[in-house]
Design a protein around this nucleic acid. Structure first.
Lengths: 380, 380
DNA sequence: ACAAGTGGTGAATCGAAGC
DNA sequence: CGCTTCGATTCACCACTTG
């Protein structure tokens, strides 16, 4: 079974409850199925709910070919109130099954996303970002009566306002964006070509299949290897395929047996990436704490030595106990750094330097790096 | 007075009621002031309401400088319910004062836009597009806890679901976008430098001044010269300044006397563009309808002549009454074009050609263009 | 005069660990 | 739980000063 095959590459350190059936597709109504999942068992939810498109008649291109619109039963609701009730119900369950530090993503268009976002706020979700998926190749507006609808909107939210421990792989996102912070507008092509699932007639197997690149960025940004991702509107199984490839677990819920079969076959064919390729790059935040005193103990800084900022505007004296002194006061490298500059706070590691024999300045953060290197060798 | 100075360049053909005081700033609460405007008197509303930011403590940059956040009284609401009531009230008045074919624009961020959009739908507005303002130079996320918030969202809506006669200058937008349809994602810098209004201390006069380029695209896309644009949250008066420059009328509503004074001075300094520069490029849709019979009357097509498609696969014969005949049937150029191809519809103008003496094919749309040229000269 | 460097700032819902 | 301490964190653009 797929689960067993996945296990070796996964990092299953997560504590707490977990759904009994992980890496499987549950058949049935998404609300009923979620009700059967344990409370607080899910790390992240990715949801691509019905858009409630409210389409009128048929639409034709200028060459008179008919646009194959989304007119499936699952996208038809009687009224906004009906859609709202449905939305509230599934969001409520999604929130219940999320871990306290879990996050939820929803994707939608202007037809439904405003209702979804408002209900999320009403239920207590705390919005972290709205993200715009800009399409490189959107469908034109054939009638020329509006702007070309060239984007969709994703909302990313934590379970609670005060949840601070949610996963956000800031450094990975920044590195992936040429060392600039990842922005809230993402550019991807729509799902076409070989990636698009086809049925036995060669027609598209699912009307709203999302590109894997989009879902991959979602999972890479806000989940860790081994996390469990729930998709209550599984459809063609993009979330499952991407999760498997990226070493995450998934739980899919889908009503339609045809979609389930297509998704399962698709996921079975996915080869997970090697654990090595998935290991998150070490971040500064995750590195072990090194007290300034360790630098003295390691002989990298002498008690009595003078520390100075980069431009030599301020100095302080190193004391044997790991504090430093300036203007008759002694405290941590951070407190004194803040004090001399007249600021509330200061990162002493990236402020103070020691002067070597040659007169060159060395940042004490560089000395800390050497201590950490030593510790790494000792630990290994 | 500014109004009188504007008159000559404006195209004041609009019928129906109109606010008594056009091109002025009304002081007071936006809901009370809107209640005093006549029903159905406004062509377009541009609204930049409070975002309800719900900021907590202070935020500092990595260099420890303090971020000057929007903490004004007007952006503080007790709860989502309070904000919703306020939103519903001003949107209701905005809808009442709009003409039946008027449209409304609202700009917001993820803090408020979902609530605004949902309430708009509840009140009967019909969403035409959501538009994303992508900022070239957004503020970074200083703590690295989220994606850089690099965009804001605009919603464009008609007053009613069935309003088909709203203004959308499709061809102007397309021409402005290198002859590609204007998309729903727009890229503009935030308002800085010389455009940003400063107070007597050199500080920003208003915390949320919008760039004129953004508002200009809004007005150029969805209003005509001479239209009346209402801005119920006038602030620094960007809407007024852009409206005056583009030959549109404005009605501004603002509570704060300081903002009013700054806005009025700003608008007084605006020089309107010449009427010539504002005349919309002729659109295909607006061009006079020319019946196929006119081509016969003009001598450009002879009765009995043969029409053919570009590849000579189908032919039809021109009849004196302006119909054409094929397969024993006679009807319009469009109906017969559809019939021979087995389609539901066909644009006969861009399908049928006549063969000239030399044997070259000429599209009958080209002949129609010549007739229109004649008509233009005759009318001038 | 031009280049380089310094300082400031924009609608912001912007910790975590240890005691 | 609260309180204290540690120390991680920014992009584009403009205005102004310095060399």
């Amino acid at each position: 079974m797929a689960n067993a095959k996945l296990r070796p590459v996964l990092d299953d350190r997560a504590a707490g409850p977990r759904p009994a059936l992980v890496d499987t597709i549950l058949k049935g109504d998404c609300i009923a199925r979620m009700e059967a999942l344990p409370t607080g068992s899910i790390d992240a939810v990715f949801a691509d709910p019905p858009y409630n498109l409210q389409l009128g008649g048929e639409l034709h291109r200028p060459d008179q070919s008919k646009v194959d619109a989304v007119d499936d039963d699952w996208d038809r609701f009687e009224s906004f109130a009906t859609y709202d009730n449905f939305t509230r119900a599934w969001l409520l369950q999604a929130r219940r099954v999320l871990k306290p530090n879990g996050t939820l993503w929803v994707i939608g268009s202007y037809h439904n996303i405003f209702r979804v976002g408002a209900i999320m706020q009403d239920l207590g979700f705390w919005l972290l970002n709205d993200v715009v998926w800009r399409k490189t190749n959107p469908m034109p507006n054939f009638r020329g009566r509006r702007f070309q609808n060239a984007h969709e909107t994703l909302i990313w939210a934590s379970r609670d306002k005060d949840a601070k421990g949610y996963t956000f792989n800031y450094d990975a996102m920044k590195a992936a964006n040429d060392d600039l912070q990842m922005r809230s507008d993402w550019l991807f092509p729509i799902c076409t070509g070989g990636e698009r699932l086809k049925d036995e007639n060669g027609d598209k197997a699912h009307p709203t299949q999302k590109p894997e690149a989009l879902v991959a960025r979602v999972l890479l940004s806000s989940t860790k290897p081994g996390d469990v991702v729930l998709d209550p509107f599984f459809g063609s199984g993009t979330t499952g395929a991407v999760a498997k490839r990226l070493g995450r677990h998934f739980v899919g819920i889908e009503r339609d047996a045809g979609y389930i079969a297509a998704a399962q076959a698709r996921i079975d064919a996915v080869v997970p990436l090697a654990a090595e390729a998935l290991r998150p790059a070490p971040t500064k935040r995750a590195e072990p704490r090194v007290p300034f005193a360790s630098l003295i103990e390691a002989g990298l800084v002498e008690p009595g030595a003078e520390l100075t900022d980069a431009r030599g505007r301020w100095t302080a004296e190193v004391r044997a106990d790991g504090t430093i002194a300036a203007n008759g006061e002694s405290a941590s490298i951070h407190r004194i750094g803040a004090k001399v500059q007249g600021l509330d706070a200061c990162n002493g590691w990236t402020f103070w330097h020691v002067r070597s024999q040659g007169g060159a300045l060395t940042l004490i953060d560089e000395l800390r790096r050497r201590v950490r290197e030593e510790l790494g060798r000792a630990g290994a």
